[in-house]
Design a protein around this nucleic acid. Structure first.
Lengths: 181, 181
DNA sequence: CTATTTTTGTATCGAATATTACAAAAATAA
DNA sequence: TTATTTTTGTAATATTCGATACAAAAATAG
């Protein structure tokens, strides 16, 4: 149920998604939605965000089990270029929420910010380890490179709406990943 | 009147800004607003976007009158870091609109995309000229570098909401501007 | 089985939304 | 001045919003 709601929120954002939309998409009546998610629409949105947090935990585990986790991160970024057109247009629900919710709902904004900061932490740790192992030659401090990947992520997630084009995106992503070498 | 409306739209986005908000902010009654802007709320938003287009024209002229226009572009990016906290949180109304309006209103989305593409064109032209003049040594094709600046712009405009911090932003911007050298 | 609790869908609520009708007021024209 | 047009603010419009009340239905317990 949350996944169906997440898909809608991801596409249309919080404000433009009505409870009627959610009811149709999930197949549950308004009463059921409010019984299941006591906080109503907002709670349902929170759950949709937290879902991404869990996905991040899954990625964390993958990185922990990899010999060259930094390569996993790089290929994750590169794989964005070949996503579907709809994925391009949807962008990232976390980044979208930060943009939409500033000045509107501090709690939702902060939830989204927290997720990106946690992602950044994961990147930074991985980069630092790779530098020590010699898999990254760059002497740029790991925290700087970690933030750079977040900036890249946010940038690409708008660029892919302007240019939902595999070649353009691949070019831009690889250009910026050169810093992590 | 448009500027007051623009300020509100810029902060809260299209959907979260009500006509009542606009009426209060501009000091004009609903009747006046609809008489002045025949398309209602949407037309007022369009005008707010077009205002940015005119600002871009102003920047174009500045570049045309400069001996080293590429330096103007660079210092524009760097100056973003030292903006006010509110400016950081507001981000860019054009980029915000692209994020908010995909799947919601194709016309507004395309208006915003057009502005960023025109900005990109301006960057690309300037970069190409600087390469020919020897002011940029990089052999990366100008169109690629132009798109890179757009990606940087969109990325920074989300990063500055997460970190409305002068030092962090300056560091990230300068890191990415190294590609334009 | 029966009794009790939980879940569901519908109908409805009040509030807020964008828009319009319209009359008073202001500006302009003659 | 007087006549005409334009602009303004208020009130009312229909619609949609998120949320709730509530009774039927389903699930669970004993």
């Amino acid at each position: 149920m949350v996944l169906k709601a997440q898909e809608l929120f991801w596409e249309k954002g919080y404000n433009a998604t009505s409870l009627s939309d959610l009811s149709t998409a999930t197949g549950a009546g308004a009463g059921s939605l409010y019984n299941t998610f006591k906080g109503g629409k907002k709670e349902l949105f929170k759950k949709s965000l937290q879902q991404r947090k869990e996905d991040l935990e899954g990625f964390k585990i993958k990185l922990a089990n990899s010999d060259t986790p930094i390569e996993l991160i790089k290929s994750f970024f590169i794989s964005v270029a070949t996503a579907s057109k709809k994925s391009h247009l949807k962008g990232c629900i976390v980044a979208n929420t930060i943009v939409e919710m500033t000045f509107i709902d501090e709690e939702l904004e902060n939830e989204a910010i927290e997720i990106l900061k946690e992602t950044e932490k994961l990147y930074t740790t991985t980069i630092l380890a790779a530098q020590k192992k010699g898999n990254i030659k760059s002497k740029i401090p790991a925290p700087t490179l970690g933030k750079h990947l977040i900036t890249l992520w946010c940038g690409i997630n708008t660029l892919r709406r302007i240019y939902p084009d595999k070649e353009i995106l691949k070019q831009q992503i690889e250009l910026q990943l050169q810093l992590i070498n």
